[in-house]
Amino acid sequence: MRDINISELEQKFQAKIDNDVKIEPNDWMPEEYRQTLIRQISQHAHSEIVGMLPEGNWITRAPNLRRKAVLLAKVQDEAGHGLYLYSATETLGADREETIDDLHTGKAKYSSIFNYPTLTWADMGAIGWLVDGAAIMNQVPLCRCSYGPYARAMVRVCKEESFHQRQGFEIMAHLAQGTPEQKAMAQDALNRFWWPSLMMFGPSDADSKHTAQSVQWKIKRHTNDELRQQFVDVTVPQAALIGLTVPDKDLKFNEETGHYEFGEIDWTEFWEVVKGNGPCNKERVDARRKAKENGMWVREAANAFAAKRAARKSA
């Protein structure tokens, strides 16, 4: 076998990326690129799956049949996203069950926003509008990510997320135009979810350890702060449109830059929640672990039955 120099392979790899040629599962890739993608895609998958819980919390209490059906469909979409994404990690050689176990042991992270509780029906609106809205900002550039299977999964995910964002905004708009109780409920949800939504873009560029390399590999196309700014610029006028107040006394529009300036994010809270000290971290991971443990006998039975069936066929 010809001894190919690693640095030559790396150069070819980077050249592909520079020319916007997608990297596919069987292509050579640096181990670090593979690991970065497995980490990022599995975190994304876990976020979809853990993200089913705060919204699932309101399915049985949805206020009417239409809202119930839409919420069910939305949470089901998230399960579907989780499935594509776990499959994408499998194309990189990761094992789905091991990946899931990493979530359960706390080794793998997921979006911290899902560690906040959903206390009222308006939280379904706030999550769709803000959380799915922030997710879209993060994910639209991923449709052009250098890794083919991830980029393609993101195209479909983004279409659905955009529908989710609109349904969330529609819930909020409806409440904001409703009775005083409904409007108060909407404002309270915005107050609670605004800052955690800004935190969804991750630490400031100065403190983000993965950004530079990921930008060079075109896994990431924009920095955390760029995306956060874009989110604020889009969302603040939407809040104004429906008569809700963004809970930030420092928020103001800068005519010169054309952007909103916003207050300091409480990074202590962010890191505490990442470390596991958010209001629902334990409940969320426990719920997922319990689902896996309670389902063990079902998976064993399915495997045993499949083996019996195969044996009968070959007999």
Binding site: I49, G56, I59, L72, A79, L83
Partner: peptide, 29 residues
């Protein structure tokens, strides 16, 4: 069935049960 949402024994069954629940809510409507 919708009580299962997020707690199914495997992801595929979470999706299936949510789907069936959605059909039933549609029929009820």
């Amino acid at each position: 069935l919708s009580e299962w949402c997020g707690h199914g024994p495997i992801l595929e069954e979470d999706i299936a049960m949510t789907n069936i629940s959605l059909d039933l809510v549609g029929q009820a409507t």
